[in-house]
Simulated scan of single mutants.
Amino acid sequence: MSMRSADPAATLTVALVKAGRTKIRYPAQQVGDDGTRITVRAPWAAPGVRDFGFVRFEPGDVFTEHYWRDRYYAVKEVRTGGGQLKGWYCDITRPAVLRGSELLVEDLDLDLWVSADGSSVLRLDEDEFEESGLAGRDPRAAEAAVRALDELEHLARTEGLAELVR
């Protein structure tokens, strides 16, 4: 997939919204935009260390994040500051919307973690998704979210996510 040339100096603000509230906002360097997929790079944006048990996100980690305007997910390649691949953290989201210099992403609770070697593929937060009530409020979005999670899990277990974000 060829990328439109992105302004190497362009900084976007990624705004991750969940349940109508901004969960986090952070600056990210735009790496590419082919009209469908927007790719940005950013350091770990949350304060301190977040230890999930299966991976630790910490200061110095670098996220290369791929957002689609037509898909219900985002794929984030996670590396240490030294460049070692930790894995891929995938958020199930509504399609991303770029408004000026803000990249708006609505988190739909479901997530997928894939370790660097592909040996660990974990579906996350399915309980939060059920509790969110999305299936009752917006059944089409809920169905699209579950399909997106299934699709990413299938790709992770077969071709690997590296092929998706090439």
Rank of each mutant, 00 (worst) to 15 (best):
L122C: 09
W44E: 03
V114M: 08
F54K: 05
P43G: 15
D91E: 14
V121R: 01
A135H: 07
L112Y: 00
G53Q: 02
E77V: 02
L103Q: 09
G136F: 08
E65L: 03
E130V: 15
R50Q: 09
W44T: 01
W88G: 03
F57S: 13
P139N: 10
L122D: 01
D70C: 03
A42H: 04
V114N: 03
S119P: 02
I38A: 11
G81P: 09
G32S: 12
A45D: 06
L108V: 10
L103M: 05
A145C: 06
R50L: 15
R147I: 05
V55E: 12
D117R: 04
A135R: 14
V121D: 04
G118T: 04
P47C: 04
R140W: 10
P139A: 08
W44P: 01
D111T: 04
D117A: 07
V78T: 10
K76Y: 11
Y89D: 12
G35H: 07
L112N: 08
D70R: 07
D111E: 14
A74E: 04
Y72D: 11
F63S: 07
G81W: 05
V146Y: 10
D51N: 15
V121M: 03
V40S: 01
E77M: 04
V62M: 12
D61T: 02
A46T: 04
G133I: 11
D51H: 14
A74K: 05
G35W: 06
A135P: 07
V114F: 01
E106D: 15
W68I: 09
E131Y: 06
L134G: 11
E131I: 05
R37K: 10
T80I: 09
W113S: 03
P47H: 12
D33C: 09
F129R: 08
L103P: 02
D91C: 09
P95M: 03
A142D: 08
E128C: 06
A42G: 05
G48W: 02
E130R: 15
G48Q: 08
R56F: 12
D70W: 00
R71L: 11
D138A: 14
V114I: 11
G118H: 02
E131S: 13
V31L: 12
A96K: 06
D61R: 02
E65Q: 15
V62G: 01
T93K: 03
V62I: 15
A42M: 05
D33K: 04
V75A: 11
D125W: 01
L149I: 12
V105P: 10
A96I: 00
L122G: 08
G133W: 09
G133H: 14
F63E: 13
P95I: 00
V146A: 14
V97F: 01
L108E: 12
D51C: 01
